[in-house]
């Protein structure tokens, strides 16, 4: 018989990802690149939204990383507009992670200060959990998806730093309950800015671009070490903290 011994580990499984994300974020910050993690379900108009934001982003050079399960249709589309775009195909994986982005940014020439938009995989669940080195998470929702989305995908709305509601030109034809939608958003994320836009008419994007410019001009490194650092009192939260003694070998 062998002796069995219990070892306390208390190590967060996302630690390594978050650690690499911090590195990416620091490198990008040093280069004057503001990084946005762009998330939304398939068909919300992520690429269209990026194109419209970029049009209004005078003075800041746009860079794009396109995450797709397969295909490079969006990348070709963006390159045709003269936008520096790097394609990642995950071939089945449901989200981008920090090691992928760490490798991808090595392939991009950041010759000017600007904004790196990372278009995540169309999915409201997994991308919300993985830091990829972003300064902010931008969530794109639409009036066509229905007003219950904050209730069904709370983490995506809770973690967002900016929320876009796209396709508002369709409101007259839909039963989108904006009050119910916003009640859910506010329960999850008290102060997040929410912008209504239409990729069809182009309305609302000036305001979004102005918000991004303001943030990008005051760029600061983000600490990804602990995603959920809300300081709620009254109960003990059981998040595992980091063991910083381990060495990292992601180079």
């Amino acid at each position: 018989m062998h002796d069995v011994k219990k070892i306390n580990v208390m190590e967060n499984i996302h630690d390594e990802n978050d650690h690499i994300a911090s590195h990416v974020n620091e490198d990008m910050t040093e280069n004057g690149i503001f990084v946005m993690n762009v998330m939304g379900a398939p068909g919300v108009g992520k690429t269209t939204t990026l194109k419209n934001i970029i049009k209004n982003l005078e003075g800041l050079k746009p860079y794009v990383i396109e995450g797709d399960i397969e295909s490079d249709i969006d990348t070709k589309d963006l390159r045709n507009l003269g936008i520096t775009t790097f394609q990642i195909n995950t071939f089945g994986a449901c989200h981008l992670d920090a090691p992928l982005i760490h490798n991808s940014v090595q392939n991009i020439m950041f010759d000017e200060k600007g904004v790196l938009f990372i278009e995540n995989i169309g999915n409201l669940v997994c991308p919300a959990e993985f830091s990829i080195g972003e300064h902010v998470k931008m969530l794109i929702s639409t009036v066509t998806e229905g007003s219950d989305k904050p209730y069904k995908y709370p983490l995506a709305f809770e973690n967002a730093d900016i929320i876009i509601i796209n396709k508002v030109d369709l409101i007259p034809y839909l039963d989108f309950d904006e009050d119910f939608f916003m009640k859910g958003v506010r329960a999850l994320n008290k102060d997040v800015p929410v912008f209504k836009v239409s990729g069809k008419t182009g309305e609302g994007f000036k305001e979004v671009a102005a918000w991004i410019k303001e943030k990008a001009e005051n760029i600061k490194a983000t600490h990804h070490h602990h995603e959920h650092d809300h300081s709620h009192d009254g109960y003990e939260h059981s998040h595992a903290h980091h063991d910083h003694n381990h060495t990292h070998t992601h180079e």
């Binding site: 580990v9 967060n12 996302h14 809300h230």
Partner: peptide, 21 residues
Amino acid sequence: GQGEPTDIGKEFYIESIEVEE
């Protein structure tokens, strides 16, 4: 009243392992 998010339900860690010497 209105509820707000907490960290309960977001845990994702290895608590412990059992090993043989």
